[in-house]
């Protein structure tokens, strides 16, 4: 029987996408660079969104008033990550990492970040946490390094 032929197509192009974060996240990242967490308020329902976005979907209103939030909040939800993906391959982490969702004081949305300073065995929702920034900030999401328990 004849061999079933296949097509191998290699297109030697680099896929480079430059996603603009938009003016609201631009300002949020500027805030992180100066070690501040910025949110924005919906003029109708007065909910505070962190990170900020241009529209409140509930009210279909343009968000308006910028607020600087206190870098403290409550852990509302979390997972413990045991694996990571490197170049498409799954491998075990050296040690598990806690990824939490934090409700900052005065915010109406949850912010997702790494949680350190508490062991996976002891972590639980309701934990009071504070933001820890990198020593040297660059205006990227990584500037907000992690949250840790308030002592």
């Amino acid at each position: 029987m004849a061999e079933h032929k296949i097509v191998n197509s290699f297109v030697g192009l680099q896929f480079i996408y430059n996603y603009r974060v938009g003016e609201y996240l631009d300002k949020y990242l500027d805030g992180l660079q100066s070690k501040k967490i910025l949110g924005i308020t919906c003029p109708e329902c007065e909910r505070v969104l962190v990170p900020p976005r241009s529209m409140c979907g509930k009210c279909n209103a343009k968000t308006k008033k910028w607020v600087t939030l206190k870098p403290v909040g409550t852990l509302k939800n979390f997972t413990i990550s045991h694996v990571e993906i490197e170049q498409g391959e799954i491998k075990d982490r050296e040690k598990p990492v806690i990824i939490g969702q934090i409700k900052l004081e005065g915010a109406d949305s949850l912010l997702t970040a790494k949680i350190e300073g508490v062991s996976p065995k002891e972590v639980k929702t309701g934990l009071k946490v504070k933001a820890v920034f990198k020593d040297t900030t660059e205006g990227t999401l990584q500037d907000l390094d992690h949250f840790e328990p308030v002592k």
């Binding site: 996603y19 603009r20 938009g22 996240l25 241009s54």
Partner: peptide, 12 residues
Amino acid sequence: KRPDVNIPELIQ
């Protein structure tokens, strides 16, 4: 080019 906005902000 619209480097000042992201995709949702372009459409809205």
